[in-house]
Amino acid sequence: MMRREQERKQTLYKETAGVVMSWFNKSKINAEEMKLLLNLLEEIMTNKHFPQLTKSLREWQNSAIDQGAEEIIMATLMAADFKKPEEIVSIIVMIDDFLAESGEYT
């Protein structure tokens, strides 16, 4: 049962990576966006070092923070090196700060 569940997650992970690559190949996203999505996928599905990242990203997506903050978060995410844990931590802190400022943080 556990094994089947594991395989299901692996299939989902590979399917998602495949979809991201196909968006890039169809020019729906650029190279930076493709890398960001793959990095997020890797962090959330494989590395799982920062469960808080998923929560923060989800809350950001469901929030209505101002355009300027949106752009800063996107630019920081795009430039982040996901191999450096301190960069992921600072992204989480930054998103949470913006959400708190806008009164969206729960």
Partner: peptide, 27 residues
């Protein structure tokens, strides 16, 4: 760690995997 995503990224850096068929094969 040579995960599926890392291989895709590495391949992309080397100018590979532009054809959707290639990605399907790797998958």
């Amino acid at each position: 760690r040579p995960t599926f995503v890392e291989v895709l990224k590495e391949g992309h850096e080397l100018g590979m995997f532009a054809d959707p068929q290639e990605i399907e094969e790797i998958k």
